[in-house]
Amino acid sequence: MKRSLLILLCTITSQLFAQNNNPVIPKSGSTLNSFIPKGWKIILQSSKGDLNKDGIADQAIVIENTDTANFLKNEGFGAKKLNLNPRILLVLFKSNSGGYHLAAKNKNFIPSENDEETTCLSDPLLGEGGITIEKGLLKIQYQYFLSCGSWYVTNTDYTFRFQNQKFEWIGYDEYSLHRSSGQQSITSINFSTKRRSETTGGNEFNDKDNKPKTIWKKVNISKLLNLETLTKEVIDQIL
């Protein structure tokens, strides 16, 4: 009997923990705070801008769990305590009445503050990254900077446009710099035109060594991917 109760208690605790990391987000709300589950917080708000061409300024936010169970002690390089709390991106359309409607969400490629495997990695989103709304486009920007283990710093930009009733992934840009040599590389992909450019041989520090060359390739995709279905695994396959 005691064993059965113990198993039941562990199961309930596990379910509560899972629900805490995967909360239910309401479809609508009067304010931004209406979309924040208990135990979570807003860590980033985008600039305001019209995403669905209705003349009303919309907004995107990133929320983060605050569960202490998602903090991990680190004995190696980097932060002494790693914050592995999950984050969720919420894209909110504003209505004429002043409230908001949930247009899209994704947590599958929103990085946490720290990384258990790459402990020297700075926060990709809040370091030099961010989220913006410009000319009707939603842009998610990350910077990958390591304080140990690598000289490279890489900026990646993901661009989405609301069309066909979803946020379709239409563009990707990547800029990489070697902080010691100044060596540069640039990749730019237009998924709408299925064209990809790769520029190598550039150098930010030395004009003599700055000899960039660009090649163009075709992108083999059958249809545009959308924000809600993007995962790190899918992105790695495309890139």
Rank of each mutant, 00 (worst) to 15 (best):
D50A: 10
F160M: 06
I7C: 00
V153L: 05
K223C: 06
L16Q: 11
D115G: 12
I110T: 00
F191T: 08
L121P: 08
S222Q: 03
I88Q: 00
G55N: 00
G49M: 01
F71R: 11
Q59V: 07
S46G: 12
N220G: 07
I238V: 13
T11H: 11
E116Y: 02
N226K: 10
P23G: 02
S97V: 13
S197E: 12
A57I: 02
R87I: 01
L89S: 04
N20D: 05
L239M: 09
W169V: 03
L90S: 00
A18H: 14
E64Y: 08
K27D: 04
D173M: 05
K73H: 13
A79K: 11
K194M: 00
N65D: 02
F109W: 15
S180G: 05
W169M: 01
G29M: 02
K218T: 14
F191K: 14
K218R: 15
N106V: 03
I56C: 04
G182Q: 00
K217H: 15
Y158K: 15
F191C: 08
I43V: 08
T156F: 15
A103C: 01
S34F: 02
E233R: 07
H101G: 10
E233F: 07
F77P: 12
T13H: 11
L125S: 06
N85A: 06
L8Y: 10
D50Y: 10
G78K: 08
Q45I: 04
G49H: 11
S147F: 09
I25M: 03
N155H: 14
E168Y: 04
D173T: 13
G98C: 00
T159P: 11
D157T: 15
K48C: 03
D209Q: 07
T214P: 12
A103H: 03
G182W: 05
L90R: 12
E64K: 01
G76L: 06
I170W: 08
L5D: 02
K208H: 10
N74G: 09
P124M: 10
S147A: 08
I12Q: 01
F35R: 07
K218H: 15
L125R: 04
L90I: 07
I215C: 12
T31W: 07
F162R: 12
R161K: 10
P86G: 00
L125H: 11
T159C: 08
A104C: 06
W169C: 00
V219W: 13
S185R: 14
S28E: 01
T159M: 04
W151R: 14
K81T: 09
V62D: 04
K217F: 15
P212K: 09
S112W: 07
T132R: 14
L44R: 11
S147K: 10
D50H: 13
R195K: 15
N206G: 10
S95E: 07
G201W: 04
E174D: 13
K27M: 03
S34C: 05
L224K: 09
V91C: 08
E198T: 14
Q45A: 04
S192I: 12
N85R: 02
F77T: 14
S176N: 13
K107W: 06
Y152M: 13
I221L: 03
E228T: 10
I63L: 05
F35G: 06
P212M: 00
K217T: 15
